[in-house]
Amino acid sequence: MTEVKPEILERIRKGETALFREIVDTYRNMALSLTMKILKNREEAEDALQESFIKLFRALVSNGFESRAKFSTYFYTIVYNTAVDYYRKYYSRAFNVTSIEVHEAYYNDGDELTRDFEPMIDRSVYGEDSLSTEKNLDIAEVQRIIRGYINTIPQQYSVILNMFFINELSHEEISTILKLPLGTVKNRIFRAKEKLKEILFREFNKEELIEYIKV
């Protein structure tokens, strides 16, 4: 877990502005990942992130941040709220992380996770059958599938996954920042992983994949 030492924060508060660069360097990539999940555009995501850092700096020098609070939670709350504000400004609608829109008549639980992903799979390579045991395991292809899946899941999932895996926030912290029930947070992470597992085992030989993973 990446956490800034309290003495660094104190020194910044007392005027050692140059030390703030350490915070920027430590968090910039992890935080950009979060703003990208919300805004889906690099320019806007970097703008939102830059503003988040400025807000953080102002909060530090004006004692807005209480040292009793956990720094990363405080920072990612700023990042999330700023990105959501940008989203509202650019898309003229509120960012919805709570409910998942379902329009299909034959909707099954979890279908929304692969709604945009399934069309990406090249059936001429993989065939229509559920298991392609003939196919040799190509790890680059495995990674491509994981990446494709992650990049196409709804934001209601990707934001939570990002907070959990990249921003290293706990279920409770995510629940607090997003104002979602703890059970919903846990459930979405679980379902997203289960669906990915299902896709991989459908596309590749399970035993072969496990053998590769073990190596």
Partner: peptide
């Protein structure tokens, strides 16, 4: 093993990087 593999695959897929001069820009604005 599978859980670990999935976790690292998800992490890798979620990761992005800022432009190289990002920190300079922030510090200049400050």
């Amino acid at each position: 093993e599978i859980e670990k593999f999935l976790d690292s695959g998800i992490k890798e897929s979620l990761s992005v990087k800022t432009r190289d001069d990002f920190s300079d820009k922030v510090m200049l604005e400050i």
